[in-house]
Amino acid sequence: MHLNFPLVLVIAVAVSGFLALLDRVVLAPRRRKAVASYEAQVDVADPQTIERLEKEPLLVEYGKSFFPVLAVVLVLRSFLVEPFQIPSGSMKPTLEVGDFILVNKFAYGIRLPVIDTKVIPIGDPQRGDVMVFRYPNNPSINYIKRVVGLPGDHIRYAGKQLYVNGQKVEHELVEIVPDDEVPAGHPLQTLANAAIYREQLGEVTHLIRQKQLSQTPKPKEWVVPQGYYFMMGDNRDNSNDSRFWHSAEMPQELWGMVPDNYIVGKAFAVWMHWPEPKLSNLPSFSSVALIH
């Protein structure tokens, strides 16, 4: 079960804000009235008694203290920038496991938190964008992939070659590297390599990764419905993505294209790398790297 953090944050802001408002409108005037009544009844007021009468209830004190902090976090996280951690290698070599990224929450329009309804349209995803979205079959989980198909596009993937609207998506070999995804002890571990290509997708030039020993998938074609986006990982042979939409090959992992209301935002920078969060393995705070 995944914690719905946006909902928890909204509830926390609402509760703390209510306590702050309750104190301002009802409780604080009542305390001042009690202090004034006490001072009118005695010749010399006892400081400790006045302090006790002026003391805020503990719950109210916490609510007033946390409200501004929580409200700022809610605004920043919901409408401006939100951090995410990369948990898998499906976007290698662009993003590695343990990368901490920043996501622009307003690039594709201002959306209300929790319900994700777009209230102010600003822009739409473009082919080649790296986008965070909610997993179509379990919206409580966030995924990150690259936008390959826009609404109305015809997508074809054949012989490990991508075609968009009948046009071959050009790519050129950059290097051959050892395939670090082959399990240790595998008989082909020393022979397995992966090819890194530079691909031009729309206006974006980026890197993709393909295993040299993997089987060539059967040719497939899709038409992207209106209001949906076709997503693929840069690690083309190790990414569960829109290519497996209604696929008999992976019935337990039916994926699907991503509807517009499941969009979270556009990933734009890596600010930290920490593959194993623990004290013995400190994070790397190299300079911020822009995501292409």
Rank of each mutant, 00 (worst) to 15 (best):
Q200A: 14
I196A: 06
Q189A: 15
Y229H: 10
G202D: 09
Q210G: 10
L213S: 06
A194W: 00
K220S: 15
R209C: 02
F230R: 00
Y229P: 05
A194E: 02
K211I: 06
I208N: 02
E221L: 08
A192P: 02
L201W: 00
V223I: 14
I208C: 01
Q212H: 07
P217D: 04
E203H: 13
H206A: 13
K220C: 09
F230T: 00
E203D: 15
Q215W: 08
L188R: 13
F230P: 00
T205L: 10
G202Y: 03
A194Q: 03
R198G: 06
T190C: 02
G227H: 12
Q212F: 07
V223K: 13
E221K: 12
Q210T: 08
K211G: 11
Y229S: 06
Q212D: 07
P217M: 14
L201N: 02
I196C: 04
I196M: 05
R209M: 08
P225F: 07
H206I: 03
Q200K: 09
T190S: 13
A195H: 11
L201D: 00
Q226K: 12
Q215E: 09
L207V: 02
Y229Q: 03
Q226I: 10
H206R: 08
H206N: 12
Q226P: 02
K211T: 08
I208T: 13
E221V: 11
E199T: 10
K211F: 05
E221C: 09
K218S: 13
P219L: 09
K220W: 06
Q212A: 04
K211R: 12
V204R: 09
T190L: 09
I208V: 15
K220H: 08
P225T: 05
I196E: 02
L188E: 15
P225Y: 05
P217Y: 01
T190W: 06
Y229E: 03
L191H: 12
Q210D: 07
V223Y: 06
R198N: 11
G227E: 08
L201S: 03
Y229L: 07
E221H: 13
R209L: 05
K220L: 13
L188T: 06
K211Q: 14
Y197Q: 03
